[in-house]
């Protein structure tokens, strides 16, 4: 090494960095979503794959065009648009016309994400808003459900009620005891709910697949279990009280809607959930509370997407209220500050 005029890089410390990247995190989320995708193909046939592909392709394309038009750097390589696409598709019924899925994807990426500054700056979950827009615009298409395994038989079986709607009717009729659940022939069993043999949105049906994804995210330290567990726990407690102690009612409420999908993959979205521990708890309890209110007293059978979006909007306020004090701040200073 004779070069005495060598050029050295001078930068601020630290000089070592972890291996984690945004792309890597998004890739982990995609991997965690694969079990649910496989389950949806198994339950609803290859059309579910077509819906997912449409959403992903539209999301990535609209992100690309959007960034081009806005003359900003290209961000599709961070894979966040792919995650949004998969999540949106997971929130749609398999029978949805593909052009509607395209509209939902464009709303999610263009309106919710890019208009507010792209990744990290959207204030609500793009996929959920995409779903809500579709639900308000095309209520019929968004609430016609295909029976599980219908793709294997020749007859086209469509129904208008999900198990959750069925339970809602039962709750309003006033009988949610275990006998009532056994007597209702329209309801799948708990075991069927676990493996996903029920009507519902693409990704939400198979509880086992979602839990596998959840465990993967926890092991890879992508998400902390605080929000999912608190959210589901809140719903469980409220439903147990509302059902006057009926464990069946509670289990059906947890497993038969979009709660698992919402709690594991939507409520834990980094950008739209609080950073600190206390904030996460408040956020998740709020989500659980609103979900239960909509499910028990609202006219819609499902309330997960609305509850998460409402709490998303409240995140800045939650963060201000649950602000963590710097290390060693004496407790007395509380009164002095405000």
């Amino acid at each position: 090494m004779k070069n005495e005029n060598r050029k050295l890089t001078v930068s601020a410390s630290p000089h070592v960095r972890s291996n984690e990247t945004v792309t890597g995190i998004m890739l982990d989320v995609i991997i965690a979503l694969i079990p649910a995708l496989v389950a949806s193909v198994y339950v609803f046939g290859f059309r579910s794959l077509a819906v997912v592909a449409t959403c992903v392709a539209t999301c990535v394309l609209s992100e690309y065009i959007c960034r081009k038009v806005m003359k900003r750097n290209n961000t599709i390589t961070d894979l966040s648009a792919v995650v949004t696409g998969i999540l949106l598709a997971f929130n749609l019924p398999v029978s949805i016309p593909l052009w509607m899925a395209v509209i939902g994807s464009v709303v999610a990426i263009v309106v919710v994400k890019q208009c507010f500054g792209g990744i990290g700056n959207n204030f609500v979950n793009p996929a959920l808003v995409g779903r809500i827009v579709l639900m308000c615009s095309f209520p019929t298409a968004m609430s016609s459900w295909v029976m599980p395994y219908a793709w294997k038989s020749t007859t086209d079986m469509l129904t208008t009620a999900t198990p959750l709607a069925e339970i809602s009717t039962m709750f309003k009729a006033g009988d949610v005891s275990a006998q009532a659940f056994n007597a209702n022939g329209a309801l799948p069993s708990i075991g069927e709910l676990m493996v996903g043999a029920r009507q519902g949105c693409l990704g939400e049906v198979c509880a086992i697949a979602l839990i596998i994804g959840f465990l993967y995210l926890i092991i890879r330290r992508v998400i902390s279990p605080v929000i999912p567990l608190t959210y589901i726990g809140t719903v469980a407690v409220i439903m147990l009280i509302a059902g006057k102690g009926s464990v069946d009612f509670m289990l059906y409420e947890i497993l038969s809607g979009g709660l698992l999908l919402g709690a594991i993959f939507m409520a834990t979205d980094y950008t739209t959930s609080p950073i600190n521990f206390k904030g996460k708890i408040v956020f998740a309890i709020g989500c659980g509370l609103i979900t239960c209110l909509i499910r028990l007293f609202g006219s819609l059978p499902e309330g997960v997407s609305f509850s998460i979006v409402i709490m998303n909007i409240l995140v800045p306020h939650i963060e201000n209220l649950t602000f963590s004090k710097p290390f060693g701040t004496p407790k007395k200073q509380k009164e002095v500050k405000q």
């Binding site: 984690e20 961000t75 980094y270 950008t271």
Partner: peptide, 19 residues
Amino acid sequence: EVDCIRCGRCAKACPMSLI
């Protein structure tokens, strides 16, 4: 360097409880 996704890893790593 890309945009912050608010993952909170910095806040979790901060020994001084800052964000």
